[in-house]
């Protein structure tokens, strides 16, 4: 360390103490960071709020060039696109009629069975303004934070399916941990992998698994409750196990791997410019006049007569 050697006396002592402080501080931050200590969360929020506008500003010319290239490519085959869109419109009109019929039928069946509806969700669209950039983790930064009513744990989707979940929220920015990140673990259901019910109760067997990110494009399907029925091409959707993800959001399709099963994701990470963040609008307030169904003594008490029976 020529620079340190060239100094003498107080300067040398200062340099060494600075170095010692830096090493101790670095190790301390690393230990806290490696153990995901929540005390570091405010630091992450501040950094998100500061960095999001800067990366958004710096990336503007790059986005412009990318969009211009994409638009020019689109302009060249505008005739072909127009023809495809017309065909799509015809098909979509047919599907709209089918969907309307299903919706009516669904509503009638719900009314017949007195079904309690799933929690209500709304969504907010956010722009991706930053990416983790390195090869060690896979996350993106969006330009909506607490001001957009986003909370940690909220689910992010693109047009195709689930992208990841919000892990850190600043005032005006948030970070999404992608499904492909090594730290990502998502409880899922493999649709069609369980046995169909042979009894009158109509309850089909549900095969659950955990989707484990490994920094590759196709996360691994692990800890399946049953592997015999899993086949390539089966749909993977979120399960509500753990209460983080709502049930039934599309994730991807099963594909076979030499070691087991992986999932080809529906989300298009290549063109991830905007994401939708699901906002849980479920009313969890407890009625003031509600009473306990089971008393502390264990005897059943009368339910609130105002509440509809479920």
């Amino acid at each position: 360390m020529a620079q340190y050697r060239s100094r003498s006396g107080i300067g040398q002592i200062m340099s060494r103490s600075t170095l010692a402080f830096a090493v101790v501080f670095g190790v301390l931050v690393y230990v806290l960071g490696a153990s995901s200590d929540p005390r570091l969360e405010p630091l992450r929020r501040i950094a998100l709020d500061i960095s999001a506008p800067i990366t958004g500003f710096v990336s503007a010319p790059f986005r412009f060039i990318r969009d211009a290239t994409s638009n020019f490519g689109g302009f060249l085959d505008v005739y072909e696109q127009n023809r495809t869109l017309r065909e799509d419109i015809v098909q979509l009109n047919q599907w709209r009629e089918v969907a309307r019929r299903f919706e009516e039928e669904n509503a009638r069946l719900r009314a017949l069975h007195n079904v309690a509806l799933a929690p209500k969700f709304d969504y907010i669209t956010a722009q991706v303004v930053g990416s983790s950039g390195g090869g060690f983790n896979q996350s993106v930064t969006i330009n909506v934070g607490r001001t957009g009513s986003i909370d940690a744990g909220a689910v992010a989707l693109d047009g195709g399916g689930v992208v990841g979940r919000v892990v850190s929220v600043g005032q005006r920015a948030a970070r999404i941990l992608l499904l492909t990140d090594l730290a990502s673990r998502v409880p899922v259901i493999v649709e069609g992998a369980g046995k169909k019910s042979t009894e009158d109760d109509g309850k089909d067997e549900v095969v659950r698994a955990i989707l484990v990110g490994d920094n590759s494009g196709a996360p691994v399907l692990q800890f399946a409750t049953k592997t015999e029925g899993i086949r390539p091409g089966q749909r993977i959707v979120t399960s509500s196990d753990g209460g983080v993800f709502p049930k039934g959001l599309p994730i991807g399709e099963v594909e076979r791997d030499s070691d087991g099963f992986r999932v080809r994701l529906e989300a298009n990470f290549d063109r991830l410019e905007f994401v939708r963040i699901l906002l849980d609008r479920t009313d969890r307030t407890i009625d003031a006049d509600a009473v306990l169904i089971v008393s502390p003594e264990g005897t059943r008490t009368e339910e609130n007569p105002d509440r509809p029976e479920e």
Binding site: I54, V58, S131, Q138
Partner: peptide
């Protein structure tokens, strides 16, 4: 800032 540019995300 350049290291954090959103030029694609995740595996892509």
């Amino acid at each position: 800032a350049l290291s954090a540019l959103p030029l694609g995300a995740g595996p892509d």
